[in-house]
Write a protein that binds this DNA or RNA. Structure first.
Lengths: 155, 155
DNA sequence: ATCCATGCAAACCCTTTGCAGTCCA
DNA sequence: TGGACTGCAAAGGGTTTGCATGGAT
């Protein structure tokens, strides 16, 4: 049980971090002409509440009041607007997670399901170069890295 | 249909290379306790006849006399025994192609659908290192490279 | 004679779609 | 108000599975 708030601001409960995220995403969507709807917010909110890459089905289960099609459509919209990115597990199961800024790859833990971002990595440049050596013009790539995170590492 | 065993390598020859490939794969499967059956050979033969990464459905269509389940089961067996590897297109369509020796990645042409192998590339080492920096034990990865092959390159 | 492999069809899973009603902008 | 958005259910595709039969070893 949480005791009284430290400050007497009238806000006993600090605004959840996810609320700001939802507002931010909704704002970006609005900028692109998409409407601000209740189901949409619920989807974004549920997505933001996940602490691991999640499946569309998990979101549906978490949102019994939102139609399955709406969840899928919302998820697709979020991917298209790059607010959410897709994550592919080793068994080809498709999951999602909120995008973080910039291009990056995912380090996926097989033990706990956690996902860490691999940034500041010149993999892309290396691939581009290697592809060029084979006379290939690289336009994109898909890369997922599997293993165990620091917490689940086998000693 | 004839599946004469022509055991030779590295020579140009008018006969389909598939015959030798089928025998070789069947031999490896036998070594692992799998049986030499007609439908199995047909699946391997059809796979070897493809010049581009192919889908399971394409194989089914090419083998109207073989049950769909048999094609899928055969394909799965070939993937498990590493005779065939899976290829993931940008739209997440799953395709297959005969494995070539050793670990490698695929350069997939968006224009003609061709697949080239990217070998002798130290991507793996780079990833391993980058992952380790994040305290991550890499055990595997999935990497596909998309673009245009030399023939389809945009000038 | 085993028991793996096959074929068929139904089941399955995940995702999309048609359509009528709803609700932002 | 009009065009987006939603919900439901049904369709869709891609793959797997149950089960009885067939075939390799």
């Amino acid at each position: 049980m949480i005791t009284a708030a430290v400050k007497h601001t009238g806000h006993r409960h600090p605004r959840p971090r996810s609320a700001a995220i939802v507002d931010d995403i909704i704002a970006q969507l609005s900028q692109q002409g998409y409407r601000d709807t209740e189901p949409r917010r619920l989807v974004i909110n549920a997505a933001a509440a996940q602490r691991r890459p999640f499946t569309a089905e998990e979101l549906c289960a978490a949102l019994p009041c939102v139609g399955r099609a709406t969840v899928y459509r919302g998820l697709r919209l979020l991917v298209e607007t790059e607010q959410v990115c897709r994550v592919l597990l080793e068994d080809r199961e498709l999951r999602y997670q909120l995008s973080h800024q910039g291009h990056h790859h995912h380090l996926l833990c097989a033990a706990c399901g956690a996902s860490a971002d691999l940034a500041n990595c010149d993999v892309d440049a290396l691939l581009q170069e290697a592809a060029a050596t084979a006379g290939f013009q690289m336009s994109g790539h898909w890369l997922e890295i599997y293993g165990r995170c620091a917490d689940c590492a086998v000693v």
